[in-house]
Design a protein around this nucleic acid. Sequence first.
DNA 1: ATAACTATTGCAAGTAATTTGCATTAGTGT
DNA 2: ACACTAATGCAAATTACTTGCAATAGTTAT
Lengths: 146, 146
Amino acid sequence: MAQCKKAGTKTIVETLQTKGYRLTTGRIALLELLLEAGRPLNVREILESWKGHPLNQVTLYRALENLSDTGVINRVDLNTGTARYEYTPNKPHHHHLVCTKCDVVEDVESCTVSTLQKKVLSGSRRFKSIYSHNLEFFGICRSCAK
Amino acid sequence: MAQCKKAGTKTIVETLQTKGYRLTTGRIALLELLLEAGRPLNVREILESWKGHPLNQVTLYRALENLSDTGVINRVDLNTGTARYEYTPNKPHHHHLVCTKCDVVEDVESCTVSTLQKKVLSGSRRFKSIYSHNLEFFGICRSCAK
DNA sequence: ATAACTATTGCAAGTAATTTGCATTAGTGT
DNA sequence: ACACTAATGCAAATTACTTGCAATAGTTAT
């Protein structure tokens, strides 16, 4: 994991540099937390995980925005009421499966939507381009089903 | 359109009744507005469309929640910052194509995700059931592309 | 129709998420 | 080590949305 972080960090610095962003100690703490969590966290969860406070809440919001900007992390909306952020440098394009009782989230990697995306674009007179899509599945996990 | 409304209203009353909800004048005004708009509106847009105020903002929030409950309207999140609601009784299952510059929204009716949904469920050990999915496409419309 | 029952409404206030302005601090390149 | 500029924290503001409660309007049974 430290190794993974080290290897990842190098590229991340470069990625941030292209937008003039700096990889500060607070942002490193944030990225490490998201990496370890392995699932999308919201602001409240991030702040609660931090006993010391590597980043103030306001700064955290700004860091999340900047890092999302560069694609190092990804903002997802899973209908849980607040935005969530996930660490993405080591992850391929994927979607999510969300339990609407306990909010547990599972990644879904099989994505056949890219071909669908082309069809959708060719079926639209009004749109010039489509550059992304969101696909989330909602269901009930086994432990909530009991 | 008046005809469409009349025909629709009958069923809507019945739909609401099953949950003990009433179809009040304010809610009728809301449904008419959403029907005429033909696209998902957020709370601010609804209130601005109403010169007189058929429903107070607070009541509007409650009405939107109740009506969503019954499926007469549908709440959608299009990453535009606030929840949007669309009139659905006359609409088949569909998705959306959103321009991220001007927020114009187009319906996408071809949905092949139901089969994908089954695959996703069978690929998950943790989940017992999947009952819905969100799929939204993001792009740039032709007039914003100029 | 009318009365009784209960959902709906509006007001005032509250909560939670997110943003902004500004002075101070910390990274980065030379 | 110096200069330049992004990042940070504080206080305060904004925005979306919710809650409690008394008054009102819709529905059902008579």
